[in-house]
């Protein structure tokens, strides 16, 4: 078991590397990411949907030049889907195909005892890595190259799976009864994400570093939009981001997140929108909001305040956005 290669020497380096991979990290994200690498502890990120939790894992994989192995969690996920499984069909097929060979091996044996011994000697053939179907967790552990293991939406998996994960995450080894214990070649960088649809167990939380990613500030979000959608004019980008921020203040069923801002920005570019007036808002708002009731509500609010929303910077609401 080797130590994970430390690619970063300071949080600043993390930040720069992430920046190069189109991920704008703030001090907090960079520092905690760095700590996670230094301490070899999994990083648990929580926050609203679409603020870039999964993206962070992808960016860090790209930045460290590691392979990204992703395990998407869902209800009913179990070890056979997450860790490993024997390929029974293949095993059966091989026994069929190798029947002649087996006959040959057994044919010369004088009694049953000897035949059994010979079979036992060949047992390893069928329980070898050849027939082991590696699922994401095992793949991350056995990988020759250092990896980033992304366990996405852990809150969707069952509690029992969480408990099982604890074992893997604390020792980075897996025991396969037929093969023995398999230890990690490189300890992977583990990122877990959760949307907090249910409480995770204390035990799991205890083993992780915790990072809460919330909605970004106007400036940060503007930077993200400018980076990811460079074709949008700066003025329009600013307006768009401001509208999104004002919508987040409203009590909606699903507040628009960064990913939706980006979708919207892309939509504005492809529609070749020159300025944000009521008409364009009306037609493109559905990119931003995904519930009919939210849409109606947002339309009402935007219509009411569209003038001061876009022009009057001294509006008390406008000032509220900047914090």
């Amino acid at each position: 078991m080797g130590n994970p290669p430390s690619f970063f020497k300071s949080p600043q380096e993390v930040k720069n590397a992430l920046g190069k991979n189109q991920y704008i990290a703030n001090e907090e994200i960079a520092t905690i990411m760095f700590l996670s690498q230094q301490l070899g502890k999994p990083l648990l990120t929580e926050g609203p949907a679409g603020v870039g939790k999964t993206e962070l894992a992808k960016a860090i994989a790209a930045a460290t030049n590691r392979d990204l192995i992703r395990l998407q969690c869902y209800e009913g996920l179990d070890e056979t889907k997450a860790l490993y499984e024997w390929e029974y069909a293949k095993q059966l097929l091989y026994t069929q195909l190798l029947r002649d060979k087996l006959q040959e091996t057994l044919g010369t044996s004088r009694d049953l005892g000897e035949a059994a011994d010979r079979i036992a000697a060949e047992e390893d053939v069928f329980f070898s890595m050849r027939f082991l179907l590696q699922r994401p967790l095992l793949k991350a552990i056995l990988s020759e190259r250092p990896t980033v293991l992304l366990i996405d939406e852990i809150d969707r998996a069952d509690a029992e799976f969480e408990a099982f994960l604890l074992e893997v995450l604390s020792d980075f080894q897996v025991s396969v009864p037929e093969l023995g214990t398999l230890s990690a070649v490189h300890i992977p960088l583990v990122v877990l994400t959760s949307n907090n649809t249910r409480e995770l167990s204390e035990a799991l939380k205890r083993r992780c570093l915790y990072l809460f990613i919330g909605y970004p500030t106007i400036d940060q979000e503007l930077a993200v939009v400018r980076l990811k959608v460079p074709d949008l004019s700066p003025k329009l980008a600013k307006q768009a981001v401001e509208i999104v921020h004002s919508l987040r203040k409203v009590d909606l069923r699903k507040a628009p997140s960064i990913s939706e801002t980006l979708d919207w920005a892309k939509a504005l570019v492809s529609l070749n929108v020159k300025n944000l007036n009521n008409e364009t808002l009306e037609t493109t708002l559905s990119v931003l909001l995904k519930h009919e009731s939210d849409l109606q509500r947002a339309r009402r609010i935007l219509k009411r305040s569209s003038k001061d929303l876009l022009i009057d910077e001294d509006d008390p609401r406008a000032r509220g956005w900047s914090n």
């Binding site: 001090e27 520092t31 700590l35 301490l39 648990l44 907090n196 570093l209 915790y210």
Partner: peptide, 29 residues
Amino acid sequence: DAMLAIDQMGIKNRDAFRLCLKSTLIKNA
């Protein structure tokens, strides 16, 4: 863990120090 993290980051930078404590001690938003 908090102590380990602080060993890594030192205590000179107050912000980094705060993040060390925050990420290791606080696990609930």
